[in-house]
Design a protein around this nucleic acid. Structure first.
Length: 210
DNA sequence: CATATGATCCGCT
DNA sequence: GCGGATCATATGA
């Protein structure tokens, strides 16, 4: 397998947390620009689990594949909330999936984090996943959450807040080449199914569904 | 209340 | 390629 990225050994997340203004923009742009950013989960006790974002999907207003398509509910509330909030949901009764809300308050949109290139806490991720292969630890949205220990207790968390246990940081690395495709597993109308709103770092070995 | 379904994953074939 | 796991959520009675 080949990887286009070289993860840093450490990262000062306190200085480079993405601000709310980053998320308060068109979701497709936010999704693209989240590539190569670093998702960080701080565990109780101070252990840091992190990975570089290598694959995302945009879910937009008036998007029949989106959980918010039929209006606000208790579950999708974070999608309508402030940009930069965590939206975590359980799918198939088993898997947690993590999103970040985007666009202005009242507008329902989010970016689903589909895959990471592991950086910090690889040994813990291996234990949680029950596998060794690093490139598979955070491949797929359910696996991202399982490896990093993200669950619904984090719903509504403000990822832009200083000291948040979950955050996204910018260490100024940029993806070489961005690939796009239709989103995985969506079942809305034709426009939603065909929209090229999945974005990934081309050639990265941690991307799902290649 | 009852029921159908899903932004998935894994193991088996 | 197929199906089972497993349950929150949404929807309709």
């Amino acid at each position: 397998m080949s990887s286009t990225l070289i993860p840093p050994r450490s990262l000062d997340t306190s200085l480079c947390i993405l601000p709310r203004t980053f998320y308060a923009r068109d979701t497709r742009l936010v999704a693209r620009e989240l590539l190569a950013k670093v998702l960080v989960h701080h565990l109780p006790g101070g252990t840091r689990l992190s990975g570089r974002i290598v694959e995302v999907e945009a879910y937009r207003p008036d998007d029949s594949a989106s959980h918010s398509f039929r209006g606000p509910t208790a579950r999708n509330a974070p999608m309508f909330g402030a940009p930069g909030l965590a939206y975590v949901y359980l799918i198939y009764g088993l898997h947690n999936c993590v999103n970040v809300s985007t666009e202005a308050v009242g507008i329902s949109a989010a970016v689903l984090i589909r895959a990471l290139e592991p950086i910090d806490g690889i040994q813990i991720m291996q234990q949680r996943r029950g596998i060794q292969t690093v490139s598979k630890l955070c491949r797929g949205p359910g696996n991202v959450c399982k490896a990093l220990g993200i669950d619904r207790s984090l719903i509504g968390l403000d990822l832009t807040r200083r000291g948040s246990v979950l955050a996204i940081a910018d260490d100024c690395l940029r993806p070489d080449q961005i690939g796009t495709s239709e989103r995985v597993g969506v079942r809305g109308d034709a426009a939603a199914r065909e929209a090229p709103w999945r974005f990934f770092i081309a050639g990265n070995g941690c991307v799902s569904d290649k």
